[in-house]
Write a protein that binds this DNA or RNA. Structure first.
Lengths: 164, 164
DNA sequence: TCTTGCGTTCGAGCGCGCTCCAAGCCCTAG
DNA sequence: CTAGGGCTTGGAGCGCGCTCGAACGCAAGA
């Protein structure tokens, strides 16, 4: 296991029930030492994605990466920061298409800031909805585990209609 | 919009911050009037999936559905209950492969109960992890929105290194 | 009667996000 | 000198979960 990546470390940092304090978010949003240029393997390790995926993101136009004398990729602080952002968005379910759109807005300059903010807000809402959906499913799964009788549906009614 | 499906209704029922009380879970796990046989369109509507998807699940061996005189599918209470379960598991991210495995365990009989329970527990843990992951991403997204300066990375350090 | 609409089947197609392959280059260790 | 390992490229391949197309059947309504 590559237990060294950002997300894993952040999750461990927070423990099992962190209230997501401001400091926690600080740790989450910026724990890496973005200073020295990194190789593709190092970045892959940091972000817990494969080098393949990093090249794929570059080909998709999501990030520009310089090359050293041997033609090898060199990820500077800016590239790493962008990839941290990109992988976080991917992990939270933003499709590649939107990411491409977002990045092209960034490339267009300052005046697209409102639009970008709009995308972020929209994605935030989508993530919130997804969390609520999962939370609901989780409750149902836990309920099923607690009352497990087999078959695909020990339906509630069967057990205790009076409880409501 | 098909606002009538189970999940949507459950989400509305809970409001925006429900503590997931027992009654809430009752409502979530068994709100449908499973009594009369249903047509494919009705089930699709109930579960907010397409008829295509229902046929696909059947082809995949996840559920058996009877036919009426015209060869049309007739979903009885058992089939509907199973499909409620299946779509909930799908929605919470269980892959088709595992669902097939689960169902085949059900078909094998009572003695596979422990194994099925194990699968549920494993899935429950996966859902919990996913929720935590999303919650973390959400915090980062909210942070970015709150401090939005443009570019792909107003990195924390840039803003207030002293805050930690 | 004829059209409309909902259903059926089987098989093919598709969008997504990687993931891998093949051929080649460069550097280092043995 | 050679072998190994890590990197490069463009393009092809893949697994997943649907989603759709084509050809057809049946039944109710204009």
């Amino acid at each position: 296991m590559t237990t060294d990546d950002l997300m894993t470390r952040a999750l461990e940092t927070l423990g099992d029930d962190g209230p997501l304090s401001v400091e926690a978010i600080h740790r989450v949003t910026g724990p890496s030492d973005v200073s020295e240029p990194m190789t593709i393997a190092e970045v892959a390790d940091l972000l817990d994605v494969s080098p393949h995926t990093l090249r794929y993101y570059e080909r998709a136009g999501l990030v520009e990466v310089a090359r050293d004398g041997n033609g090898h990729r060199v990820y500077d602080a800016g590239a790493v920061r962008r990839l941290v952002f990109l992988t976080r968005m991917r992990l939270s379910g933003m499709p590649m298409r939107e990411l491409r759109e977002y990045v092209s807005l960034v490339d267009e300059g300052e005046h697209t800031t409102p639009e970008r903010l709009g995308m972020l807000v929209e994605h935030r809402d989508a993530v919130r909805r997804r969390i609520r959906e999962l939370t609901l499913s989780l409750a149902a799964i836990e309920y099923k585990i607690a009352t497990y009788g087999g078959s695909t549906g020990p339906d509630v009614r069967v057990l205790d209609p009076a409880a409501s």
